[in-house]
Design a protein around this nucleic acid. Structure first.
Lengths: 203, 203
DNA sequence: CTCGATTGTCTAGCGGTGCTAGGGTTGCTG
DNA sequence: CAGCAACCCTAGCACCGCTAGACAATCGAG
């Protein structure tokens, strides 16, 4: 039976090779350069081999998106874990998120700009995506404020980060002001005390 | 010379026809369906005619993006004009923005998701894009707060709206909570008093 | 050990894409 | 009215995602 095991292992290896190569190519030359022909040539197999691992290009993108979600969640948790106090944790989360998007633009595209054929915000949503949101919720939930739904607050904060990430990446926002914008975001959405309260009402 | 004038007019008419048709097709069936062949057939000319008006498909997308920017600016100004008080104006702006994105998804895509070959955040940026940002700045600048740069605050608010718009459209956020998210956004970024102040520091 | 069956891979090709070269026809101009 | 210039279309290029079918290598049964 060892022969079969070897074959299974080799197949798994080749599937990893496909994903690693696709990701590499996308980061180097953009997703437009990731064609099935180019990808096949790089892995030194013919095109049909790709289709014995994935239904099509969409599914390759989707697989990389899932990888990315797991990595983003890990990066966020690592950054948050090293920070003391609610406000510091949120700040660390924001920087970790934006850094990830800036450092892995192709993967971020796979997650949010391209069609990877993944389901969102429903039951069939793959685990890594749910967990990615959970990683945000862990930190952001504690600063949502008393009468605010943590999930809703997390969605809003996430949307703001996503907007900053994408607009910056596409050249609509200048990168040099990223830090000031991030500080302002945390200031406003969380508050300076880090407890999500807003001070007394004035009117 | 009247013949030449007629020709110029006809050319301009045809260019409008191309843009109207492309936009219509994109809204009806998505940008994937906007191929040069399909578009040529709809305007009842052959493909090369398209290239006598635009350098390529990118430029068509770009032209529609500029139209969209002008319309978005107008929609925002109209909504803001009908509102009394800074906070009400910001709320109206937010809804107008999100409504525009939801009602004209293909145009919004042309503006922000697709490559229209346009320049951003620099001198060569086309006027409609600058004016679109200006429309946001007019209302948002007055609630930025004393020690906050109005431009920076506008960028942040815009990014949040953009994030909400795109994540909602792609199914990552559920539409039914849009109103609550928008209220929370305005509450946090502007403050309940509508003057951009945040209450006394607590720590 | 032989021989059929199964598995794996490749070549070749389909229908589509954006874009363009070159030939005609049309209609204006002197 | 003749000649010319402007205009538009047919045909085709190189590429895309994807797949059918031929071929080779490997496996398992007799």
């Amino acid at each position: 039976m060892s022969v079969q095991e070897r074959k299974v292992r080799e197949r798994a290896d080749r599937e990893r090779l496909i994903l690693v190569t696709a990701r590499e190519l996308a980061e180097q030359q953009g997703w437009d350069a990731v064609t099935t022909r180019q990808l096949a040539e790089r892995i030194e197999y013919s095109q049909p081999v790709l289709y014995s691992h994935f239904r099509g290009k969409r599914e390759i993108i989707g697989a990389i998106a899932l990888e990315g979600a797991a990595e983003l969640a890990a990066a966020v948790r690592a950054a948050v874990g090293a920070a003391k106090g609610p406000r510091a944790r949120v700040t660390a989360l924001a920087y970790a998120y934006l850094d990830f998007a800036a450092q892995n633009p192709a993967v971020y595209d796979a997650m949010f700009q391209l069609d990877g054929g993944l389901a969102f915000a429903q039951d069939e949503t793959p685990e890594p995506l749910k967990d990615g949101f959970a990683a945000l919720l862990e930190t952001l939930g504690e600063v949502a404020g008393d009468d605010v739904d943590p999930g809703l607050f997390t969605e809003l904060f996430w949307a703001a980060l996503h907007g900053l990430a994408t607009l910056t990446r596409s050249g609509r926002l200048l990168p040099q002001d990223t830090e000031r914008r991030t500080q302002l975001l945390v200031d406003r959405l969380v508050g300076r005390d880090g407890l999500g309260s807003r001070g007394p009402r004035r009117s």
